Amino acid sequence: MAEKPVWSIRNDGFVIDLAAPGVASVCFVEMGAALAGTRRFEGRGISIAQHCVMGAQAILNEGGTQLEAALFLLHDGHEWLLGDWTQPQQQLLGSLLPSLAVKAAIGQMKAGWDAAIYAAANLPLPEFWTTRQKNLVKSMDERMCRAEAITHFGPQAASQFSDNHPPKTTGTICIWGTARAEEKFAEYCHTFIGPEIIARQAALSVKTRRGATR
């Protein structure tokens, strides 16, 4: 995605090139840990991991398939590496820079890593999702976002979102601790992706990082 590598230092001290998304770099264990430690709404909401798990639970509770729930579980997976680009942040960037260029750049970064993540999970890539799958993931994301905002900031926050019905979550939306969020994300990854794939990707990602040079 870039002329030169964009190195990001990982927890083990090795690096990954953010500009070169690839299946070999994807680790669902590290993803869960990172997303569990990153909170939505500029750090004031539930973690990204909890958002993904509760949205996946809601899809199942509303009669969706396990595949559809799996697609939602990983829809923010790219934020494990790229961070949480909130809508206010994107709007601010758009006001300072050509908005179409900002939107296109952010979309390209996310799409590159989304493709690698879903391929690593042996799930359909977003470009091949059915219309129902695309609409379902987008709708649940918006419904969860609205429900989370109301829970955290009160009913007046609903005015900032399109009117939609609350998702059928398993339990109320209350902030989980980091350990619980990481554990639940891992549990759903094992259910939807499978322990063999998770173990394979963990080993492969370590090998890939250690082979990278700055």
Rank of each mutant, 00 (worst) to 15 (best):
C189Y: 05
W7T: 06
T191Y: 09
W80Q: 11
L123Q: 03
T65L: 12
G211Y: 09
E196T: 05
W80H: 14
L92W: 13
K207A: 15
M140P: 01
S95E: 08
W85G: 09
S8M: 14
E68C: 05
K207D: 12
D76I: 13
S159I: 13
P155M: 00
A49G: 04
L73T: 04
E30C: 10
E182T: 01
Q50L: 06
G55P: 14
A19N: 02
Q57P: 01
S139L: 13
G63N: 09
F161M: 10
E183G: 11
G13K: 02
P167M: 07
G171E: 03
T169C: 09
L125A: 14
A149F: 02
P195Y: 06
H190R: 15
A121V: 04
G63K: 09
S47T: 09
A111C: 01
C52R: 05
I175G: 11
W176F: 11
K168Y: 13
T191N: 13
S99W: 06
D76Y: 14
P88H: 10
G94T: 08
I16E: 14
L123H: 07
T208W: 08
A56S: 11
Q50H: 01
E187F: 11
I150Q: 05
G194A: 00
G55M: 12
T208P: 06
P167A: 07
C52H: 03
I9M: 15
A203F: 13
Q160P: 05
K4T: 13
G154R: 03
R40D: 10
Q133E: 15
T170V: 12
I197E: 05
A116T: 08
A56G: 02
G107A: 07
E187C: 14
D114W: 02
S47Q: 04
E68Y: 02
D12A: 13
L18Q: 04
R200L: 09
G171W: 01
G64M: 02
D141A: 14
W113T: 05
R210P: 05
I193Y: 07
S25G: 13
F72W: 08
R209C: 03
H51R: 09
L67M: 11
Y188T: 03
L81A: 06
H78K: 03
H165Y: 15
K110M: 02
I48S: 00
L93D: 11
Q90K: 13
Q66H: 15
S25F: 14
P155C: 01
C145E: 12
E187D: 15
M109W: 11
L123D: 02
A120Y: 00
A101L: 08
Q90T: 04
P21W: 02
Q201Y: 00
S99C: 11
W176R: 00
S47A: 00
P98K: 01
A105C: 03
L60W: 01
T131F: 04
A36E: 06
A115V: 12
F153G: 07
T131I: 06
G107W: 10
F128Y: 08
N135I: 07
N61R: 14
S47M: 05
T169W: 07
M1I: 08
A56Y: 02
T208N: 05
G43M: 09
K4D: 07
A202L: 05
I46G: 08
C52K: 04
T213R: 11
A24S: 09
A116V: 11
E68N: 06
A203C: 11
H190V: 15
I198K: 00
T178F: 13
